[in-house]
Amino acid sequence: MYAFDFVKPATLSDAVAAMEQEGAQALAGGQTLLPTMKQRLNAPDILISLNGIAELRGVRREEDALVIGAATTHTEVARDAAADYPGLAALAGQIGDPSVRNRGTLGGSVANNDPSACYPAAVLGSGATIATSKREIAADDFFQGMFATALDDDELITAIRFPIPHKAAYAKFHQPASRFALTGAFVANFGDGVRVAITGASEEGVFRWTEAEAALSDNFDAAALDGLTLPAKGMIGDLHGTPEYRAHLVAVMTRRAVAAAR
């Protein structure tokens, strides 16, 4: 790999200051960033490791929400969110494989906004709020298309606040080679409304399926989705699946998520 500098601050304020340097980029689990640097798809001059900052780690309950530090690993979320938000914990426990889950983090996944990643569906489907080093951003404003987010270059995600729904589940159709979602649906029932977020389908990245939300808000049952379909236009087409196949899978996975919600 090409040469770069590495720093590992112990506090968030030191990390925020380090991010202001020219060519600086945050390093969390490195499960996405290091492979892309090896391929020169990305070439920061200085990596700022977030792995030594205790205040960025951990899962805590705050009234009706679960607040999770950006540098919390998928393994930690799978374990520590299980009692309060089982649908979210189950999603974290299905990301990649155990070794990926031991390094990969919530903040890294959400900042990266891979169109087939799992966490963006939970963040958007829960109506979560992304807290950064500068401000708070609603999930509806955060995701801005494939690999694009509202974050500035020097902005760090510090934590994500997930309102806890009455019932929720994530249904993932595994793409067996990458272990990402070929298509996945996150459904959350808040009692006064239902949110449905879809990943791995649209060329615009994660999105809310508003027709399904309306139908499920009236009747939270998979049968409420009968007859609802999405157009294939704008869906991802690649060697793993055509746009038509993905549009079909969206409806199938949403039904499965409704049936599995608890």
């Binding site: 499960q31 290091l34 155990p98 031991n102």
Partner: peptide
């Protein structure tokens, strides 16, 4: 104690 992929972890980290 936890398994990780050593090709995707920096030694200094």
């Amino acid at each position: 104690g936890k398994p990780v992929k050593s090709c995707s972890v920096l030694a200094m980290d």
